[in-house]
Design a protein around this nucleic acid. Structure first.
Length: 366
DNA sequence: TCAGATCATCGTCAGGTGCG
DNA sequence: CGCACCTGACGATGATCTGA
C-alpha cells in the first residue's frame, strides 16, 4: 500500500529524524558535535519493514552505536540477522511496527511530520468549520413540482429580508426553462448570475441541478448563504436508482465556502398538496450536512425513497470524503518530497564533513 | 488532422479503523 | 457491536501528448 510507505520510511529502519529536517535547517545544517561521533552510520530509508540498515562503517553486531545526524545524537541497537544483515533492534521498533500495522491516516501522518518540521509547514487541521448555522428550517416544496420526478421550471423569489440562517422559500409559478441550462449540471452549478435579472425572481434550471442564486450576493453572504443547488433525481450524478422520482438533494454553499447538503423528499400529492419537511442537523451527521426528515412516512414507496435518500446521502458524503482524502494525500506526498530534499541535502553535507575530517586526520598523521 | 497512448481527476465500492 | 470515517482499488471521463 502506498500509504504505508511514508510512515515506514520515517519510523522503520531509518534514522529517526524528527528534529533534524526542519525546512529552516535545509541547506544550512552542519553537524556541530563531531567529537561525539563514535561511528558514522548511513541508514538508508526504506519502505520495507525489517529491511536491514545499511552500515557503511565497520561496526560489530550487537554493538551500541551512536548515530549523529544534523546535530542530533541517537543511540541505536544493531544486531545481525540470520543472513548477515545488520538490523536495528530498538526496543521501540516492535511497538512502532504494531502501530504501523494499522492503516495510517494521512492527516495524522502529516501532522506528525509537521510537528517535527519547522512551523513553515502547515498542519492539516481538523475541520473546525462551524456547525451548520441552519438548525431548523422549514422548506416548502412547490405544488407545481411534477410528480414524475422532473421539475418544471419555476421561479424562486428570495424573501426581501430572509431571516438569518434560513433557506429562502421556494415559490412561484412554473417557468419554461432554456434547454441549454438543463444540459450539464456541472455547468449549471455555481451560477450566481446576479446581473442577469434585477428582479427578485430567479429562473432555476430543472432536471439535473437547480440553483438558487442570489440576486444580491452581499445580502446573502451576510446571512451565511450564497447559493443553493438542487439536484433532481434520475439525472447527472444522481442516478434513477439512487434517487427515486421526486427526491431532491439540495446543496447550498455558505458564505465561507462550506457546502451544505440537504436531502428533500418531494412527494407531492396528486391534489398538489405541498408537503413540508423539517430540516435539522442531527448529531450523527457531520457539520455541514443536514437531513430533511419527512413527517409521517408510512408507505413502502416512501420507505424505498427514504432508503434511496440515505444511500444518496452516503454517496455524497463519501464523495466529499474521497476528495478530502486525495487532497490530504497530495499534501502528504508534497511533505515527503520536501523531506527527501532536506535529507539529501543533509546527507550531502555529512559526506562533505566526513571527507574533510578524513583529510584532516590524514594530514595530522603525516 | 486524427487515432491511440498517457495522464489526471473524479465517483463509487469495499474493507479497515476508531470510537462511543 | 454498530456506525461513521478513511483510504486503496477500480472504472469512467476528459485533457493533453505523440506519431503517422
Amino acid at each position: 500500500m502506498p500509504g504505508f510507505g511514508g510512515k515506514q520510511l520515517e519510523m522503520d529502519g531509518s534514522i529517526d529524524d524528527k528534529s533534524e529536517d526542519s525546512p529552516s535547517s535545509s541547506g544550512s545544517s552542519q553537524p556541530q558535535n563531531l567529537s561525539t561521533v563514535v561511528h558514522t552510520i548511513t541508514a538508508v530509508p526504506t519502505a520495507i519493514p525489517n529491511q536491514p540498515v545499511q552500515v557503511q562503517s565497520v561496526i560489530q553486531p550487537t554493538q551500541q552505536s551512536v548515530i549523529q545526524a544534523a546535530g542530533q545524537i541517537q543511540t541505536v541497537q544493531v544486531e545481525e540477522d540470520g543472513e548477515g544483515h545488520l538490523v536495528r533492534t530498538d526496543p521501540d521498533i516492535e511497538k512502532r511496527r504494531e502501530i504501523l500495522s494499522r492503516r495510517p491516516s494521512y492527516r495524522k501522518i502529516l501532522n506528525e511530520l509537521s510537528s517535527a518540521e519547522a512551523p513553515g509547514i502547515a498542519k492539516i487541521e481538523e475541520d473546525k468549520e462551524e456547525e451548520a448555522a441552519i438548525t431548523s428550517i422549514q422548506t416548502t416544496i412547490p405544488s407545481y413540482v411534477q410528480t414524475s420526478g422532473q421539475y418544471g421550471g419555476y421561479c424562486i423569489k428570495e424573501p426581501t429580508e430572509p431571516p438569518s440562517h434560513q433557506l429562502p422559500i421556494i415559490y412561484g409559478p412554473p417557468v419554461p426553462l432554456p434547454p441549454a441550462r438543463m444540459q450539464d449540471s456541472s455547468k449549471v452549478r455555481g451560477i450566481g448570475d446576479a446581473s442577469q435579472d434585477s428582479s427578485s425572481y430567479k429562473k432555476v434550471t430543472a432536471g439535473q441541478t437547480i440553483q438558487i442564486a442570489a440576486a444580491n450576493q452581499n445580502e446573502l453572504t451576510t446571512q451565511g448563504l450564497q447559493t443553493i443547488t438542487m439536484t433532481n433525481a434520475g439525472q447527472g450524478a444522481v442516478t434513477a436508482a439512487a434517487m427515486p422520482a421526486g427526491t431532491t438533494i439540495v446543496q447550498y454553499t455558505q458564505g465561507d465556502g462550506s457546502q451544505q447538503f440537504v436531502t428533500v423528499p418531494v412527494s407531492i400529492s396528486p391534489a398538489g398538496e405541498v408537503q413540508a419537511y423539517q430540516i435539522r442537523a442531527p448529531s450523527s451527521l457531520p457539520a455541514g450536512v443536514v437531513m430533511a426528515t419527512p413527517t409521517g412516512i408510512t408507505s413502502p414507496q416512501q420507505l424505498a425513497e427514504e432508503s434511496a435518500r440515505k444511500r444518496e446521502l452516503r454517496l455524497m458524503k463519501n464523495r466529499v470524503a474521497a476528495r478530502e482524502c486525495r487532497k490530504k494525500k497530495k499534501e502528504y506526498v508534497k511533505c515527503l518530497e520536501n523531506r527527501v530534499a532536506v535529507l539529501e541535502q543533509q546527507n550531502k553535507a555529512l559526506i562533505e564533513e566526513l571527507k574533510q575530517l578524513k583529510d584532516l586526520y590524514c594530514h595530522k598523521n603525516e
